[in-house]
Computed example of a mutant assay.
Amino acid sequence: MAIASVATEYVFSDFLLKDAKEAKYKGVRLDLAVDKIVTFLAVGLPLFLISLAFAQEVSVGTQISCFPPTNFSWKQAAYVDSFCWAAVQQQADSSPFWLHKFFPYILLSLAILMCIPALIWRFTAAPHLSSDLSFIMEELDRFYNRAIKLAKNLASLDDKDANQDSQSSASELAEGCFKYLLVEQYLKTKRFTHILVVKYVVCRVLTLLILLLACLYLGYYILLASLIDEFPCDLRTGVLKNNSMVPPAIQCKMVAVGVFRLLSYINLGVYMLLSPLVVYAAFGPARQSSGFLRPYELLPGFGALGVIRPVYNDLSIYLMFLQENLSELKSFKCLQVLELLQLAGDEGFDTMCLLQTLGQVKTDVLDSRKMSTKNKEVKKPEE
């Protein structure tokens, strides 16, 4: 009997969480995996394509190649290239040649625009969400520890020596420990607030709009602007206006348009694939439920939250990010082990003693709550 008591003591001690010396939950994730993928690709891809564009410029040289007269020297030919490159946007042709000139900088603008929704979320919602998530996760771990400690104290009582008074006092102690679950009461209040969910949906809608605008621009560039890469350049300006030695027009060609067209195809294809992901993320709060907290139902007093309905409120946002940070919850891992042992029906005395004690405490708490509810219903008609 003494050996069994010592073994039970060790089992309870193993499942009891130790107090961390360092600050807890430093690595709380404030972005969902889908949002991280969208932001990484939407921002990183244009920056990568910009580097390819500038690498092409370094390897090929000038972005424009003009055909000067044969009597021009190499300095005059270089001047023609520089002059026509500067005068690209002044062409009378309706084709927007300036898009070829500023194509890398337009990609840079797209990357900056894609950062805006992530920055809005980071500076307006993430600080408040971080503090709340740390509080919720800490309370869940404390609730688990209280349940294990209570089960340990109850298991240490010898059933033969324990009288009815000690059993009733144990039930009252269990009821007192789990009567007011702070984390569940706090989460219930989030059913009636919509600040975080509005910010989340606004950021997703803004991301989708920027993606669609980028797709429109890239589609326009591919279908119209990139088809024409040659134009005439008039050199007769300034002191050369009346110089008969200078021809009225020189044919020029944009060298990098073919490369820019290929980069546009790549960027457009990736952005079109990201758009459904953004829509999927925007409907995330409507699909969220509290079913992932099912292992905590092994503990007495838990379960008053229930499975939420698919609605847009702050509670769905908290549950989404709580599910994203389950790896930070040590109590969740321990409860998963206990749940698997319970489903497997392990006959080991020590572990089953812990499970049986938790089940008994849970039953006592539920019975106490039912009795208090009945007493309230009886008192109301009498009044």
Rank of each mutant, 00 (worst) to 15 (best):
L99D: 03
F67C: 09
D93E: 14
L157F: 12
D141R: 05
D141G: 04
A151H: 10
D81F: 08
V88G: 02
L99H: 05
I120H: 02
F143C: 06
L113Q: 03
S94Y: 10
L140P: 01
D93A: 11
M137R: 05
L107A: 03
R142L: 11
C66M: 12
S51R: 06
A125Y: 00
L140D: 01
T62I: 05
L140Y: 00
T62F: 12
D159P: 10
L99M: 12
A53T: 05
S59E: 13
E172V: 04
L133Y: 00
V80N: 07
K101S: 04
S73I: 08
I148D: 00
V58L: 14
M137Y: 02
L140W: 03
F103L: 02
A147F: 08
F54K: 05
K149G: 04
Q167H: 06
E172K: 14
S130C: 09
D132C: 05
I64S: 05
A126W: 04
I50R: 03
I136C: 03
A86Y: 11
F97T: 01
F135I: 01
L129N: 01
C115P: 07
D141K: 03
I106H: 02
D132E: 09
L150F: 08
K101M: 04
S94H: 06
A125E: 11
L99V: 09
S95K: 05
R146H: 12
A118R: 14
E138S: 13
Q90R: 11
F135D: 04
S166W: 00
V88T: 11
P96R: 01
L99W: 05
A53Q: 07
D165E: 12
P96K: 00
S65F: 14
L110T: 01
L107Q: 08
D161H: 06
S168L: 15
L113I: 06
K160A: 11
S65V: 11
M114W: 07
S169C: 12
F143W: 06
C66P: 11
F67N: 14
P68I: 09
D161T: 10
I64M: 14
V80H: 07
F54Q: 03
L157C: 06
Y105M: 12
A86G: 11
Y105H: 07
Q167C: 04
L113N: 03
N153C: 07
S131N: 06
A53W: 04
I148C: 02
S169H: 13
Q164G: 03
H128N: 07
E57V: 00
A125M: 11
K160Y: 13
Q90H: 07
L52N: 01
A92T: 10
K152D: 10
P69C: 09
N145V: 07
L99C: 05
I148E: 00
N145E: 08
Q167R: 15
D132L: 10
P96W: 01
L99P: 01
Q164C: 01
G61V: 08
V80G: 00
V60M: 11
E139N: 08
C66I: 07
V60G: 04
S169G: 05
A87M: 14
I112G: 12
L119G: 03
S73H: 04
L157G: 02
A78P: 00
A170F: 12
A125P: 00
L154M: 10
T62C: 06
